[in-house]
């Protein structure tokens, strides 16, 4: 399948924070149709970057180039799963997904894709934390699917947190399908060993600046693991993927 549509180019992006800058002159070109992992230790600026890319927060400096043909309303060019969800209204799971503006059967399909269709009629507020998160994931995927693949971007802030391996796998396959269809997909995650076999490219943020962008093996070097995560480890590559091997939690 050929990928149509433009890459998302970020140029000199900065965002000031209360104590120190959250993003520092970040420049990167994010290709569409590839599985992009946004990595970095806690406080590196991953959520800040996703906030800016989603239009939630205006950058202090820098520009975003969405390419020609990007629709003016933000809601028509990106879907965004933020790190926290605020919903407290007693909707059923299926009703939450339908908030993306899709019909009931479409909402059920999205719940089924993530393997949680059995909970469709259950009040959202009675679901466990992981299931609630999956319901929002289904809602955001439903919104993304309404966008055209050649203009749509999906930003996902830690959708794998609090999920067991089965559901993490469901989420990653759902994202892989969108990426193969030509959507731009950027996934922020701390679960590197779950996300790395999935990722084609890794954008590593350190202290708000872009430390590296490229193939997992090239980005996650033993030196960087030691310096930024304080662990001993190495990337074990195989044909078309790989995994991180943690040798010791001591630096």
């Amino acid at each position: 399948m050929t990928i149509r549509g433009a890459a998302l180019t970020v140029e000199g992006l900065s965002l000031s924070g209360p104590r120190q800058a959250r993003l520092k002159a970040l420049s990167v070109t994010l290709p569409r149709g590839q599985r992009l992992l946004l990595a970095g230790p806690n406080g590196a600026g991953k959520s800040s970057l996703l906030d800016v890319l989603s239009g939630d927060v205006a950058p202090s400096a820098g520009t975003l180039h969405w390419g020609p043909g990007a629709p003016a309303p933000w809601a028509e060019r990106r879907a965004y799963l933020p790190q926290r969800n605020a919903l407290a209204h007693p909707f059923s799971a299926a009703q939450v997904v339908a908030l993306a503006g899709v019909g009931a059967s479409d909402a059920l399909d999205h719940l089924e894709e993530l393997g949680i269709k059995d909970w469709a009629e259950q009040p959202y507020s009675t679901l466990s934390g992981g299931l609630r998160r999956l319901v929002h994931m289904a809602r955001v995927l439903a919104q993304l699917d309404r966008l055209a693949p050649e203009v749509g971007w999906g930003f996902f802030d830690e959708p794998l947190a609090n999920l067991d391996w089965r559901y993490a796998g469901r989420v990653l396959s759902a994202l892989a399908r969108r990426s193969a269809a030509g959507y731009g997909i950027l996934l922020a995650a701390h679960e590197l060993n779950l996300a790395l076999p999935w990722a084609e490219q890794v954008l590593l943020l350190i202290g708000g600046h872009g430390e590296a962008f490229g193939a997992p093996a090239a980005v996650l070097t033993p030196e960087r693991l030691a310096t930024h995560w304080g662990v001993q480890g190495h990337f074990e590559a195989w044909e078309g993927g790989g995994r991180l091997v943690l040798d010791s939690l001591d630096p």
Partner: peptide, 18 residues
């Protein structure tokens, strides 16, 4: 109706849906 439903998501996520 639909707007008030979406609004329950919270200011930020409701705005994500436009």
């Amino acid at each position: 109706g639909q707007a008030l439903d979406q609004y329950q998501l919270g200011d930020r996520e409701a705005a994500h849906h436009g």
